[in-house]
């Protein structure tokens, strides 16, 4: 399945598709959650929320 289909499904609320996008971007989120050399769990959570918002708001 290509990314466009996944994203479309995720925008229509398919939890499986959202999970797939989350899985694909997890490493990026983890990388961005490191602050002063330490993994910041609160920051990771905030960034996950941002990802969910982005999935919803992105115009294909």
């Amino acid at each position: 399945m290509n990314f466009k289909d996944i994203l479309t499904q995720a925008q229509h609320g398919s939890e499986q598709a959202i999970a797939e996008v989350m899985a694909r971007y997890k490493s990026l989120l983890l990388k961005e959650s490191v602050c002063r050399g330490l993994f910041d769990e609160d920051l990771y959570q905030e960034l996950c929320i941002i990802l969910l918002n982005c999935i919803r708001n992105f115009r294909i």
Binding site: F3, K4, L7, L28, E32, L43, E46, I50, C54, F58
Partner: peptide
């Protein structure tokens, strides 16, 4: 097309992440 879409999405996401991180 799918790749370019994914690139666009990644860029979009990165900007949002950077902003959020800065604010946080």
């Amino acid at each position: 097309e799918s790749f370019s879409l994914q690139n666009r999405f990644t860029a979009y996401l990165l900007i949002a992440l950077k902003r959020k991180k800065r604010d946080y």
